[in-house]
Each structure stands twice: as C-alpha cells, then as structure tokens.
Simulated assay, not measured.
Amino acid sequence: MNVEASPLFDVATPFDLAMQERDAGALFVVNHSGGKDSQAMLIEVLRYVPAAQILVVHATLGEAEWPGALEHAQAQAEAAGCPFVVAQAVKTFFEMVEHRFKVRPGPNSPCWPSASNRQCTSDLKRGPIQREVRRYAKERGLLRIVGCMGLRAAESPRRAKASPWQLNADQSVAGRTWHEWLPIHDLSTPDVLRIVADASQELHPAYAMGNERLSCVFCIMASANDLRNGALHNPELYAKYVEIEKRTGYTMHMSRKSLEELTGVPA
C-alpha cells in the first residue's frame, strides 16, 4: 500500500484522504466476504486505523455462500477487537431467482443475475450492508463513514478502472458524508497472500481445496475451476442449482454454458 503523499502539486492520494477521514473520527466499514482479499484488506486497514473506528460487515448469502465464510470473517474481526455485524436481505438468493422466473419467464429475461444486472450484489449485499451501517452509525451519532472494499485492479479490466476513492453521493445525506475506499486496489494476488501469511493467519479452507476466489459457491462469474470445486465439495447445493437451470431453461453462468458442462460433474 502506498502511504506517501504524491509530490506532484501536493495532490492527495486515496490513502491521504482516508487518513484525513480517520483523523476526523470517521467510521471505517470493512466489507468482509470471508475471502482472501477481504482478509488482507482488514489486516492493512488495521495498520493505520484504530480498531475502535472499524466496523466489519459480512453480507450473508445463506446457503449460496461457501460454508464457514461468515464464521471466518467474524473470527478475524473479533481477534482484532473490531465489532462485527451480519447484514442479511429479506429475501434469499434462490427466492430472488424463483421470483424473477415467475414474473418474467420470457426468453429475453433470464432469471439469474448477470454481469449487466448484478441484482445479487445490489439487493443481497450492498443494500443490506448500507442499511446496517446506517443503523450502526445513527445509534452512535457518527456522521463520517468510509466504506472499504477489497476490489483489486488485477482482477479484471472493469475493476482496474474503479476509482480507489470516491464520494458515495446517494448515502451522503442529512449531514452525513460517506466515501468509498479501495485500500488494496493496487495489490497483486501474491501481495495479498503474503499479507495474510505475514500476519500468521489462515485462509478460508476453500483455498486449500484449490479455489481461486471465494464468495458464492457458484458465482455467475466464477472460473470453471472454482465451479468444479464447489460441485465436488457441495453436492446438494450443486444439485439445486442444476435443477433450477433445467427447470427454468436458463443457465446461471455468464458463459451461457450449463453448470454440468462447465464442471464436468453430473448432478
């Protein structure tokens, strides 16, 4: 992480701006999926921000997420002395999919989320997290918030274009300022693994099984490798996804290939 201000025209870096918010007493909200990037991000944020100014939030996806992801995030937060909150949507992932199929069954309205319609992110993660953060901040009279996410430029061209620091205008209301910060945006995967190892922490067990990333067991953008791991280690959940694909006639993956094609694992 770059901790020095840019010498060119004294332009403040995202890190500088984050530290200004820290000194102003802002609440730093670490969004923790249970994955390696979230884990490394919390380690890094704790290097510069007191635990008393940090709230760790996990948006649970219930049975759709890797078993133990919530507990892994919670254990790291509690070990660091940070409060931990679980954000949960009023509907489940499968209820969302089934409802979309019921109300829009036509061939041009897939019931699964897609890269262009990330309803799983907006409805099941971002919305519930913001709700819990607003509640937590209101109870404590906090009017400055910095939302921290573990997105990295190396993950995709889209994420490479993401701004490491920006104002969340939608949530900056009623005297409250809310910024979004990507503390590990410029780090590589080896950097992330080194940070976790240097902190003498273990990754979620799914990585030892061979997973490259961790969130939903069957993500619409997951690699075939991760989908296969998910199928082999979560057979009942896999069968549920395959059944919905066959019943609705829609494939869940952005490749438009069925899970059985991608994994080579029969349900």
Rank of each mutant, 00 (worst) to 15 (best):
H233N: 01
R134D: 11
L237E: 04
I220A: 07
P107E: 04
H233W: 02
S33M: 12
I129H: 13
W165R: 05
R159P: 06
S38V: 03
A162L: 11
R159A: 10
G25P: 13
P113G: 05
H72L: 04
A69R: 02
I195E: 02
D37S: 11
C148L: 08
Q88D: 13
Q76K: 15
M96C: 05
S156T: 11
V133H: 10
L227M: 12
Q130I: 14
E21S: 03
G68W: 03
Q20F: 08
I195V: 02
L187K: 00
R159V: 08
L151H: 00
H99V: 11
C82W: 07
F15E: 04
T60F: 12
E63Q: 15
D170L: 15
L42F: 06
S223E: 14
A89D: 11
D16E: 02
Y136K: 04
A208I: 07
R144D: 13
L46S: 12
Q130P: 09
P205E: 13
Q88P: 09
A169D: 15
T60I: 13
Q74K: 02
G230K: 03
S122D: 15
V242Y: 00
V86M: 07
M252D: 08
N31L: 11
R134A: 13
P190K: 02
A73Q: 04
A59M: 15
W181F: 02
A87E: 06
L151N: 00
S109F: 04
S255A: 14
V29K: 08
A24I: 12
E155V: 05
F28L: 13
N229R: 02
L214K: 10
I129N: 13
M19C: 00
I129Q: 14
R228D: 06
R47H: 10
G81N: 11
A51T: 07
C111F: 02
A51Q: 09
G141Q: 01
P110A: 04
L17N: 05
A75Q: 14
A52P: 08
P83D: 08
T13I: 06
